[in-house]
Nucleic acid binder design. Sequence first.
RNA 1: GUGAGUGUAGCUCAAUUGGUAGAGCGCCAGACUGUGGAUCUGGAUGUCGAGGGUUCGAGCCCCUUCACUCACCCCA
Length: 432
Amino acid sequence: MERIQSIRGMRDLLPADMPLWQFVEGTARDLLSRFNYSEIRTPLLEPTALFARGIGEATDIVAKEMYTFADRDGESVTLRPEGTASAVRAYLEHNLANELPLNRLWYLGPMFRHERPQKGRFRQFYQLGVELLGAAHPAADAEMIEILWEFAAALSLRAVSVHLNSLGCAACRPGYREALVEYFTGRVGELCPTCTERLHKNPLRVLDCKVEGCRRAAEGAPHMLDKLCAECAAHFDAVRAYLDQLGIAYALDHRLMRGLDYYTRTTFELLAEGLGAQNAVAGGGRYDGLVEMLGGRPTPAIGFAAGLDRIVMLLAEQGARAPEAPLVFVVALDTESHKSALSLMRELRRSGLRVECDVRCGSIKSQMKLADRRGARLALILGEEELRTGTVTLKDLAAAESADKQSRVPRQGLDALIRDKLRLRVSEEMRP
RNA sequence: GUGAGUGUAGCUCAAUUGGUAGAGCGCCAGACUGUGGAUCUGGAUGUCGAGGGUUCGAGCCCCUUCACUCACCCCA
């Protein structure tokens, strides 16, 4: 019998992986609530037209990476390849703009793209998205980048850097594009075959080609930042001033482009070392045109998406350990003890402690062994003796062999005693 | 979609020029039947990714196929 396994590019996040994931997600929730952003949850499945219109028909995502199929009634539906289009759709569908002039939103969940998997890239992957709708002011750009910066800081992400660029607007980008084509046309000979093609389809992409020859050819290319119109230039300068005020370090990166059609003006990325070729941890920017493209009134907006798979991978490589509540393991030696243990465990759990036992009810040895495997901090042993005297044997599994490693304590008020013991050990460990 | 590499016990890997599988770790059980993590002893486990071919004989050679990994492309 052939065993069924998960679909290519779609992986299981196993129990051992989850503490880090929960740490990352918890950190995001906590941070965003302090910036007073509201969570929004949208369906995984949307009408195909939403993405075709929002992201751009010509982008790779729409042209060849979407999970698109006919629903039972024939409607073309698509598993969301990113979150912004859905968030904006919901924003318009429920008239959120009418309730508030400024909407701060975030979401977190799986996205789907039918790409060839590789390190840091999956067909089902998780993104944290943050969107700020209704503000054209550069202060909004700065807030968005600050959130990303604070997120990285709260996670203690090492070896990451913020890259910043401006893509200009409908007024100045076409001019830049022309200048770029003109520049590269003069050195077609130095470009790789793909770039020769790109030159006509998407000249901006030539800038971030990895081939050595193209990189050299791109060195003297004109910069978007030099071709910005007066408004875009002023906007960008203001954003930079805010970032300086906040002490946020960034690198100007004139080769930083966005693959989705809806981006304008400010774009930024959080890049990390140690992720292989997929080194972008988060990316975002201003998308002043999207709301209107999706049928709403012209509304300025900015946002970013962070790749949680990559962040978790980075943290794991940096040896990060997610904090976990200490575990109390109850060991019962016979049927009577086990009955009594049930009540004890309920009590302790209701008092907020994390408690489990070995429901296989085997020998004390195998129970102790499981306690150890599970990483328990304390073992509570219940046997005939303890039942008779109204006590439990408390063993500190993490302590070195010593007189107070194990002791007989009264069952009354046990949870307070345990809390004391755990606090003590925690404070000991926190000393450098 | 393109290219390269890899597929042998739960995990990491080994198997001389083709002679029908082994180690470490892990797991389970024992070592004065009320005590884990160290040590010792014993034990279970593989259709050698799948299908076909060559051969007296294939984990090793050939073909096909699938999966995984990394890179390109693109992106988070």
